[in-house]
């Protein structure tokens, strides 16, 4: 099953099970979604539940907040992360705050689906990542689907949860293939051990998990050591327990993120390691991240702006060698 099909199935099943689930966004209905995630759903559930909105992001999220206040379970789709900036007032001031400010009287059972990241030559206004800003907002659950099975289970959870969830997807993952275990009991807040190892913990999320997995054979060959690869899955709250167990075993941590390095999300993980796990560390924690530049259009420059499997492998091997591996 493809990643986008897993997402579609999650929405389909929740819509079938619960008549209060509605989907809204640009081209989500008759068109089927710009990444075909909502394909076929309008035929099943009608235009009242697959709501084609104008190109007005503030309203897409703002309306979803009002729908959730009135007892629906809206799933709002932002076409691409950069456009969400027009909706950030609603995401931060409304979606994240109403429960707290009303002392729990108002619940917002809603999801904002959030495709993001560097795709292929879409240039600076269609290539960004905003997990660093979203995770800094108390009151929002931030999930990041880097895997097909997780995408299916976590989106189902997000739609049925009574908390507001930002559900981050990576634009290059929509056609990724994977197995879905429909009967599995997946905890959406638990980090996923993608590969076990004993010498280096590599923490990542979204598409970078795949890039890390591509880099790992080279790293292991050069260093003669094994890597443990962790997909964070939930960016807020963070599953520090899984990270702690892995780090106690390996003593070394690398965080890989696609986003610009300065102010990037990965800094939260390395600062946690430095503050809380200092005496378990055998090497300084490092981050491998994108450059501090807007994403350029030219393919060569675009690839130079973000981590690639080759760059990840090279950096980890160098760091390993200078730190006793």
């Amino acid at each position: 099953m493809l990643y986008r099909e897993a997402l579609n199935r999650a929405i389909d099943e929740t819509m079938a099970a619960d008549g209060t689930v509605v989907v809204l966004g640009e081209d989500v209905g008759l068109y089927g979604g710009s990444y075909r995630v909502t394909e076929g759903l309008v035929a099943k559930y009608g235009e009242e539940r697959l709501i084609d909105t104008p190109i007005a992001e503030l309203s897409i999220v703002g309306n979803a907040v009002g729908m959730a206040m009135a007892g629906l379970r809206p799933v709002a789709e932002i076409m691409t992360a950069n456009f969400s900036l027009l909706a950030f007032d609603q995401i931060i001031n409304h979606m994240a705050k109403y429960r707290y400010m009303s002392a729990g009287k108002i619940a917002l059972p809603m999801v904002v689906r959030f495709p993001q990241g560097v795709s292929r030559q879409l240039a600076a206004q269609h290539s960004e990542s905003y997990e660093q800003m979203l995770s800094a907002v108390p009151g929002l659950i931030v999930l990041a689907a880097g895997d097909v099975n997780y995408a299916y289970h976590a989106l189902k959870y997000a739609i049925m949860s009574d908390d507001p969830v930002v559900f981050i997807e990576h634009e290059l993952l929509y056609n990724k293939k994977g197995e879905v275990d429909f009967d599995a009991d997946i905890d959406p807040f638990k980090a996923r051990i993608v590969k076990e190892g004993s010498d280096i913990t590599i923490v990542s999320y979204l598409k970078m998990v795949d890039d890390v997995m591509e880099a790992v054979p080279q790293v292991e060959k050069e260093l003669g050591k094994t890597c443990e690869v962790v997909d964070l899955c939930s960016l807020n709250p963070v599953d520090y327990k899984t990270l702690e167990a892995s780090l106690k075993k390996t003593g070394r941590i690398v965080v890989v993120e696609e986003d610009h390095k300065t102010g990037g999300y990965g800094a939260q993980i390395t600062s946690w390691a430095a503050e809380e796990m200092f005496y378990s560390l055998d090497a300084p924690p490092i981050r491998i991240a994108g450059e501090d530049v807007p994403i350029p259009y030219n393919r060569t420059l675009e690839l130079a702006a973000i981590p690639t499997p080759e760059k990840i492998a090279k950096r980890i091997a160098e760091w390993g060698k200078t730190n006793g591996l």
Partner: peptide, 20 residues
């Protein structure tokens, strides 16, 4: 439903509520 201190911010919420 409040009580919104972002000028105009409650209007899209009311639109969503009316839809619901």
């Amino acid at each position: 439903y409040g009580g919104d201190a972002i000028v105009g911010g409650q209007i899209p919420n009311a639109v969503g509520c009316a839809y619901a």
